[in-house]
């Protein structure tokens, strides 16, 4: 029987041994690549401008109608299963939920067409859900997300500020959420033809531009 106290004491001892074993590693000096230094400079720059960060955060709070909450949602309702094979959409009083029904293989994607001025700013991965942020010099952003590892994941769209309509992306139907006010971004959500991957794009762009971006998503090698 291993008690919690025993575990705690042993964990302290194990940690000390681990630290001691790092002595040689700590001495080595690596010359970091320019790419790495650039990313870290960005990280530190954001840290240096807390006020701007707060203002930006507030602006994002206003404009961001897609709340990307990939969390645990203990819910299952057969009636809610609609056109999607592995993802279902369910409408609640104030939001739409996209929920995965099954797990699938992870494939990475990127945008091969972007409106002028946008470049990839950073990518964030959370348990099989990937968010890529493309940014312009004036601060406008495109949020592109996809989720292929579908275990217990949900994506929510606040419905108070949008009108939903169906648009076509080749053979696939997509949900286009047009913002009701100009300080809210438009959103496009759809699944891959086999239903295994849920995509979303959120940006201050018109429907035709979002559709064009969506049509030009490519699989990363």
């Amino acid at each position: 029987m291993i008690t919690e106290d025993m575990l705690q004491a042993a964990a302290h001892e194990a940690d000390k041994a681990l630290q001691d074993s790092l002595f040689d590693l700590a001495k080595s000096e690596h010359i970091f690549s320019k790419r790495f230094e650039r990313k870290i400079r960005k990280l530190i720059r954001r840290a240096r401008h807390p006020v701007a960060t707060v203002v930006f955060r507030r602006a994002v709070c206003v404009c961001q109608i897609v709340i990307l909450i990939f969390g645990v949602w203990l819910l299952a309702d057969a009636e809610a299963r609609t056109a999607f094979l592995n993802w279902t959409r369910r409408q609640y009083e104030s939001f739409y939920e996209y929920r995965a029904n099954d797990s699938s293989n992870k494939t990475d994607y990127s945008l091969s067409w972007l409106p002028d001025g946008y470049t990839l700013s950073y990518t964030r991965e959370l348990s099989g859900n990937t968010v890529q942020v493309y940014e312009k010099e004036d601060g406008l952003r495109i949020y592109f997300s996809y989720s292929t590892e579908a275990d217990s994941s949900s994506l929510f769209v606040e419905s108070d500020y949008v009108l939903c309509q169906t648009v076509e992306l080749g053979d696939v139907k997509a949900d286009f959420y047009r913002a009701k006010t100009e300080n809210v971004s438009n959103v496009l959500i759809w699944t891959s033809p086999d239903g295994s991957t849920l995509f979303s794009i959120s940006a201050f762009l018109e429907q035709d531009q979002l559709v064009q971006i969506a049509k030009n998503i490519k699989v990363q090698e």
Binding site: I2, M6, L7, A9, A10, A11, E13, A14, A17, L18, S21, L22
Partner: peptide
């Protein structure tokens, strides 16, 4: 990480 477990307690070594 590879850690040398010589000379440390049994439970800590297992961790």
């Amino acid at each position: 990480l590879e850690v040398n477990t010589e000379g440390i307690g049994d439970l800590a070594g297992c961790i």
